[in-house]
Amino acid sequence: MKRILLTAALASVLCVSFLGGCAQEQSSDKNGVNASSANAVAPQEIDPANQDATASATNQGEESSMNPSISTVMLSIEGHQFAIDLADNETAAAFATMLPLQTEMSELNSNEKYVYLDSSLPTNASNPGTIEAGDVMLYGDNCLVVFYESHATSYAYTRIGKIADASDLAAVVGSGSISASFAAA
């Protein structure tokens, strides 16, 4: 437990020093993968020596220790509820300690909503090759992404979880920014 708290404290210190996130505008490839609108911001590899400080998610709860019993998180958008089955990893466990979380999520690439978290989370990023609608991922160490359309990707993410039934997610999130809340189920 002390190790977890020490890790969380270290992550907070590093976050203050190295905040960054989903940074640069993308252009379409031949297949339209990762196409962005003129004002969208797209994920890119993060250079710790040159990062922006752009935190916009607000932690509504008290700081808490990791609760291994949390395996499902509820995502609420415009009165609609989506159950997120958390991955069995350190990142998902650390995310669960941030709950409840109320935030504004921005649109990107007509396939995802994202927000910069106030704190860094542990990472174990890899390229999934294909993103599926309902994937909840971490880009870098503080950019929370909810994907509402499936697509191929060349980016690396750390899995946080997956929405159990994302069949109407795209219709609910629409094409602009959204207010979203995450809470333990």
Results as ranks from 00 to 15, higher is better:
78 E>M: 14
145 V>Q: 11
4 I>T: 09
150 S>Y: 06
183 A>R: 14
47 D>F: 06
179 S>L: 11
13 V>L: 11
89 N>I: 01
10 L>V: 13
71 S>H: 03
57 A>V: 01
51 Q>S: 11
119 S>G: 04
144 L>E: 08
9 A>M: 15
104 E>S: 13
30 K>E: 10
14 L>C: 07
66 M>P: 07
144 L>W: 14
68 P>N: 09
105 M>A: 00
133 A>Q: 06
177 S>C: 10
89 N>E: 03
51 Q>I: 01
58 T>D: 12
87 A>T: 04
24 Q>V: 15
50 N>W: 11
122 P>N: 08
120 S>R: 07
124 N>A: 11
94 A>W: 03
166 A>G: 02
103 T>P: 03
54 T>Q: 13
108 L>P: 01
63 E>D: 07
157 Y>I: 00
115 V>Y: 01
7 T>Q: 13
94 A>D: 04
76 S>W: 02
23 A>C: 13
135 D>Q: 07
88 D>V: 06
119 S>P: 00
132 E>M: 14
123 T>Q: 05
62 E>R: 14
185 A>V: 00
156 A>E: 10
146 V>G: 02
130 T>I: 08
156 A>Q: 11
136 V>M: 11
4 I>P: 08
152 A>R: 12
167 S>L: 07
17 S>V: 06
171 A>R: 15
58 T>S: 14
82 F>N: 02
2 K>W: 10
28 S>W: 11
88 D>T: 05
86 L>E: 03
137 M>K: 10
182 F>N: 00
131 I>D: 05
170 A>D: 05
39 N>P: 06
123 T>R: 14
109 N>M: 09
104 E>R: 09
76 S>D: 09
176 G>Y: 03
